[in-house]
């Protein structure tokens, strides 16, 4: 069995089945609602808008009527290596403020907003564009009432800091807290899943501990259909994708002609 570079106790990871994914966007909405992500008046400015779980639309480029579209939902990949074999993430190595770390207990890349100085090095270093800079304060105008739905489990961000997907880290804390109340120290497979995993109406997302062979996610990650985005950067993302379609798989990396190996 291939052992991940992280020998910590848990390595939480995700597998997204692109054949099941319908591109509906429920995961992205669930994520924003769960994590107090601010919604701006103009969300069409994709350079500035924030979506921890971003959906990318791809097409096979064939002419009518052989055209096909598909989607890549993209959370933070929670990379385990920086691409040079070091056990850290590309964003973590560049952070000058120790505001982001690869958590050894969970494999989650943390982001501490109160620590972040907003230099945006991490944003530049992330190959997956998973990091977002707050150009403005979170948009909750006084008297509009939008702040009524904010959850206390996730801290709202101020302008000038970077934010990103945390694998709903607060849900891990929630699960642990509940386990403690029930006199347990360990949590079960389904007790901690991210908001997007839970929300996906097509059950395309599987979440769990990659280090635990009993978890579905660790089996799925070893499927012959599994692949990761920009795998050859050697960042060892903990988000895997499944697809049986070669044209989809091919778009996961920048292949030279004849370099891509089709499944079939």
């Amino acid at each position: 069995m291939e052992k991940g570079p992280d020998h910590g106790k848990h390595r939480y990871g995700m597998v997204i089945d692109l054949d099941k994914c319908t591109g509906c966007g429920t995961c992205a909405v669930a994520c924003a609602a769960e994590n107090n992500v601010s919604v701006r008046q103009d969300e069409s400015d994709k350079e500035r808008s924030i979506s921890w779980m971003q959906i990318f639309k791809i097409t096979n480029g064939k002419p009518y009527p052989d055209t096909e579209v598909s989607y890549f939902p993209r959370p933070c990949m929670h990379c385990e290596e920086d691409g040079h074999g070091h056990h850290t993430s590309p964003c973590v190595t560049v952070c000058v403020a120790t505001a982001t770390k690869l958590d050894p207990n969970s494999g989650i890349v943390s982001q501490i907003y109160t620590r972040c100085i907003g230099c945006r090095y991490c944003q530049a270093a992330c190959p997956y564009k998973a990091r977002y800079f707050n150009w403005w304060d979170a948009y909750f105008p006084k008297g509009k009432g939008l702040d009524r739905y904010l959850t206390p489990e996730v801290s709202p961000r101020m302008r000038g800091v970077v934010e990103k997907c945390t694998f709903c880290h607060h849900r891990l804390m929630r699960a642990k807290t509940r386990a403690y109340a029930e006199d347990r120290r360990e949590i079960e497979e389904d007790e901690y899943i991210t908001a997007c995993t839970e929300a996906c109406p097509a059950q395309a997302i599987t979440f769990g501990d990659l280090n635990n062979p009993k978890h579905r996610v660790s089996r799925l990650a070893k499927s012959p259909n599994a692949f990761r985005l920009l795998e050859r950067l050697n960042t060892k993302p903990k988000v895997y994708y499944l697809s049986t379609k070669d044209w989809v798989r091919k778009l996961a990396d920048n292949y030279l002609p004849d370099e891509f190996k089709p499944l079939s």
């Binding site: 982001t100 207990n105 943390s110 109160t114 489990e153 801290s155 607060h170």
Partner: peptide, 11 residues
């Protein structure tokens, strides 16, 4: 010491 990781106490 493992509990000194950032995400243990920050949200």
């Amino acid at each position: 010491e493992e509990n000194n990781a950032c995400f243990v106490c920050h949200k």
